[in-house]
Design a protein around this nucleic acid. Structure first.
Length: 591
RNA sequence: GGGGUCGUAGUUCAGUUGGCUAGAACGCUGCCCUGUCACGGCAGAGGCCGCGGGUUCGAGUCCCGUCGACCCCGCCA
């Protein structure tokens, strides 16, 4: 039976009481965290977002009866007198632990069912249960901390961009579907039968148009939508820190974003050393087999092709002769692996897609899984990867990009197994000079690697028609600990060049007009050179919070199968709604 | 679309080669307890072993299918 709030007015939050408050009368409002009933005296921990205060009930028969009715997670109002705890009963674990409230009145504002999991304990609970009762999970310390951190990071970001003269401007959520890129979420128009809005994959064109509009400096903390399969670091809807500035070079963007990182990391009390390292895309692929290398674990991949060009091992020799590569890296301390552990590693590699993984143990003579390889061939390879005596060389051969990619995956697997990825370390990296285009075998055409509005590097523009794959873009990613936390580019501001790119992408003039006509037209009205970046807020906060999934930093996330387990979305809709939207369903799911 | 891990009291888990009348901890309910703070003590309730089928004298355990959560590949301009 719930009682009204009535005259109870909160005087303090549950985390606020201090010895200075001793002797005053206070009112606390919050949830029953824990009850310790000792018979003649009862302690009630009352909790809110700000902390926990101990309430004491004693020598008051009526109050004892109320206390008896209390259960976990009841909402209560307590009025009482703040008293100092005796020295031997101080609780140093609580900020409020030097005082307690001697209750004069306890009002049960609302009762609560027994929760499906304990709120007062941060113990493990399966994720589907947590998601179904998200409002309860959000009461627990883990998510309270994460959501609070996210708030502070957002504020720090807004403050920084404001200081730098940026305007936060809202762009439409009901936008126009554009081809290329991720699958769109479509919203049917009631007023225009058969026509659809699309939820933005990013406000890309709007922010560019804002540059044309003379906004000069724009940012927005904005929700973006992509209808693709989920991952630990990908949700259907996610939040970008979207940034665009006029008259920008890549250097301007680096100079803008780098000082922001220390500001963000200050929220977890960590410092960031600037400037941030840079590495070209080509180097990243060659040395780390990834366009988002994790630099916490060393193990740089080296090219060994020349070492084995004239090798007695025919497989290597043949692959190199056919234009392939032999590459490998050294595992620190890897010589400790037993033969059976090495067999397991080779098996794992095969599951990852390696045709073969070859290991070499340094020593005199070195020991190699391929007996045909002599010391004379192995010695230079070991030297090249700087393998010490207790290290282990892992090698693979094949086409350059694929070999590097596989070695890159193996490198991360080994790093994880060997605990080389220090969670306390933060290694930032700019990856630069991405290819502008990539070729897709399936439909035999070129696609933009970033997006179709990305500017090629000035010196590569001439190769657009002759050697499209060699054209580098003014595009860059910001990488942190092997995670892509941002990406951007300098855009094309010249309508003629933009048309040339569309042609290159196989988009006809007619088609381009249909899809981007408004934008192409705008480009012709005095577009300043401009560029920008978008930072992945969810990923950044997850890294700050030490979480491996962005679901832990999103208040109401969806499952891997794109379902909101709490609200039950998606769900069927009324026939009337469908009619109004001029939609007929091919399949009907029973409600 | 493909591969993998998991699914047993409210929760987290254990459950041997198929023998189960399915256990533990926490939580929950009742009683006792005047300084606890993860209070303590005593007693108790609580299970379609995800679901469906099969093998077997017998299935929580083995097989097939299916559903769900999670991880990875594809996908994510």
């Amino acid at each position: 039976m719930a009682e009204p709030l009535g005259s109870l007015v909160r005087t303090h939050t549950c985390g606020a009481l201090r010895p200075a408050d001793v002797g005053t009368d206070v009112v606390l409002l919050g949830w029953v965290h824990r009850i310790r009933d000792l018979g003649g005296v009862t302690f009630i921990d009352v909790r809110d977002r700000h902390g926990i205060s101990q309430v004491v009930v004693r020598e008051n028969v009526a109050l004892m009866a109320v206390a008896k009715r209390l259960r976990s997670e009841f909402v209560v109002g307590v009025s009482g007198h703040v008293q100092r705890r005796s020295a031997d009963t101080v609780n140093p674990k609580l900020a409020t632990g030097e005082v307690e409230v001697l209750a004069a009145e306890i009002r049960i504002l609302n009762e609560a069912k027994t929760p499906p999991f304990q709120i007062a304990e941060d113990g493990p609970v399966s994720e589907d249960v947590r998601l179904r009762y998200r409002y309860l999970d959000l009461r627990r310390p883990r998510l309270q901390n994460n959501i609070g951190l996210r708030h502070r990071v957002s504020i720090a970001i807004r403050k920084y961009f404001d200081e730098q003269g940026f305007w936060e401007i809202e762009t439409p959520i009901l936008a126009k579907s554009t081809p290329e890129g991720a699958r769109d979420f479509l919203v049917p128009s009631r007023v225009h039968p058969g026509e659809f809005y699309a939820l933005p994959q990013s406000p890309q064109l709007f922010k560019q148009i804002l540059m044309i509009a003379g906004t000069d400096r724009y940012f927005q903390i904005v929700r973006c939508f992509r209808d693709e399969d989920q991952r630990a670091d990908r949700q259907l809807e996610f939040t970008q820190v979207d940034v665009e500035m006029s008259f920008a070079q890549p250097e301007s963007i680096y100079n803008l974003i780098e000082p922001l990182m220390p500001r963000i990391f200050k929220e977890i009390g960590r410092e960031v050393t600037l400037p941030i390292r840079r590495m070209s895309y080509a180097d990243a692929i060659a040395k780390y087999g990834s366009d988002k290398p994790d630099l916490r674990c060393g193990m740089e991949i080296a090219d060994l092709s020349d070492v084995f060009r004239d090798s007695e091992f025919r497989v290597f020799k043949q692959i190199v002769a056919d234009g392939g590569v032999v590459r490998g890296f050294s595992v620190p301390g890897g010589n400790k692996y037993s033969r059976s552990q090495l067999d397991v590693l080779v098996d794992q590699a095969k599951q990852m897609g390696f045709t073969g993984l070859i290991w070499v143990r340094p020593g005199s003579p070195p020991l190699c899984s391929v007996k045909a390889l002599s010391e004379a061939a192995l010695r230079p390879a070991l030297d090249r990867v700087k393998a010490a005596t207790d290290d282990l060389l892992l090698m693979a051969a094949g086409p350059a990009d694929n070999t590097s990619k596989l070695l890159g995956q193996l490198r991360l697997a080994v790093a994880a197994k060997e605990n080389l990825l220090n969670p306390e370390a933060f290694e930032f990296l700019w990856v630069t000079d991405f290819p502008l285009l990539e070729y897709h075998e399936e439909d035999g055409r070129w696609y933009s690697m970033h997006h179709p509005f990305t500017s090629p590097k000035d010196e590569d523009v001439d190769k657009l028609e002759t050697e499209p794959g060699a054209v580098r873009a003014k595009a860059y990613d910001l990488v942190l600990n092997g995670s892509e936390i941002g990406g951007g580019s300098i855009r094309i501001h010249d309508a003629a060049l933009q048309s040339r790119i569309f042609t290159r992408l196989g988009i006809s003039e007619e088609e381009a007009k249909l899809r981007f006509g408004f934008f192409l037209e705008a480009l012709e009205y005095g577009t300043p050179p401009h560029g920008g970046i978008a930072l992945g807020l969810d990923r950044i906060v997850a890294i700050l919070a030490g979480e491996s999934s962005i679901r832990e930093v999103i208040a109401f996330p969806k499952t891997a199968s794109a379902v909101d387990l709490m609200a039950g979305a998606p769900s069927p809709v009324d026939a009337k709604q469908l009619r109004e939207l001029h939609l007929n369903l091919k399949t009907q799911k029973p409600n």
